[in-house]
Design a protein around this nucleic acid. Structure first.
Lengths: 197, 197
DNA sequence: TCCGTAATCGAACACTGTGTTTCGTTTCTT
DNA sequence: AAGAAACGAAACACAGTGTTCGATTACGGA
């Protein structure tokens, strides 16, 4: 790991700006947050902000990248430990979301920007398409595409519902109910036993 | 019907503005459309715009209301004809969307504002909740709520996928596949045969 | 500890897009 | 034909964004 040792001031400033934005999103919603609000909350000068980020979106995106990095790191770690044991990916994701629920709520919840939800959607969709392909599912192209969107969208929107409502049930319960809802239909349409497992 | 006879100029202006906005949304996306673009396209003066609408959102909302009105009218008409025969609501909706697909794409598609999709979501959610209630489904509250969101979100997102991709299959095919996907799971979780029908 | 360097502040600035106002002109209704 | 209503054009105030620059402060290596 090549840690480009950063100036303490830089760290402090970026941290303060990111936290301020997350807080403000949860309070007033992404669109209503003005740059000036962020500066006041973080106690940072205007020119300093633009020295680090091109705009509000870049600031949030940097936090998103940071999150993705942390997630992948955690994923590698867990995979390393439980080598051999089959890892349940969706449930693993849910547990991670539970752990960082504030951030997820700000990024992907009702008050988020919507743009980030669609980024995540695109990311997950690619993933789901690969899984379908790896299971050798053969369907008319439009059907395969619809199923991929169905799985992606269902998982994502249930996840967003979950965090937006402050997680009214455990990750396990959510996962269990979700599987009971979608597995029978998928089994029927795809003629397979289970995906992911 | 009390038609408040409108000045021809008013009709022409409002029509031109609404059409211009829809066109521009499909071309560059809602957020990228500036008032000035609308004015240029519709060939309408700035002050005239603000004499009719408070802002861009109000303009689109007026078109949405208009659409809702037309839909309800059509719904009443069809219900009147086929009285006695059971009406399949979801399929009916899909056929209507197919008929006005351009408008739906602009309002609810990728390039739309996102705000309108969530309006529609809220509307459909209320509907689905009522259906669940009328079927006397008894589940832990969070489960009932999750199922309601699941049904709503699935229907809505498949619909959006459909119009965004220029309807790669017929309304009937979409409906058929969607039902095959969700009915088995719902039957299992809700212990009922079929909803809507 | 000291010094060069880099980050920060703050204030002023230009710019873009929104919404308002006014007034002269056009076009509808009766 | 006449009064009323809608329209267009231009000027305006305003809010929020992003830039610039010189003075100040804090950091990290020697």
């Amino acid at each position: 790991m090549v840690e480009a040792k950063q100036d303490r001031r830089v760290q402090k400033t970026q941290q303060a700006l990111q936290n301020a934005l997350i807080e403000l999103i949860l309070e007033k919603g992404y669109d209503a947050v003005m740059i000036q609000d962020i500066l006041d909350r973080a106690n940072v000068g205007r020119s300093t902000f633009y020295a680090h980020y091109t705009d509000k979106e870049a600031l949030l995106m940097s936090r998103l990248d940071q999150l993705r990095g942390a997630f992948e790191e955690h994923f590698q770690a867990v995979q390393g430990i439980s080598s051999g044991v089959q890892l349940n990916l969706p449930l693993f994701v849910l547990r991670y979301v539970e752990h960082e629920h504030q951030l997820f709520k700000a990024l992907f919840g009702k008050r988020g920007s919507g743009k980030y939800t669609s980024h995540l959607h695109t990311f997950l969709l690619k993933f789901v398409r690969d899984i379908l392909k790896s299971y050798g599912v053969h369907l008319p192209t439009y059907e395969r595409e619809l199923v991929a969107h169905y799985i992606t969208q269902t998982f994502l929107s249930m996840l967003v519902w979950w965090v937006d409502n402050n997680m009214p049930c455990s990750a396990e319960d959510l996962y269990g109910l979700l599987m009971r809802l979608i597995e029978p239909g998928l089994k029927d349409v795809l003629h397979t036993s289970t995906l992911w497992a």
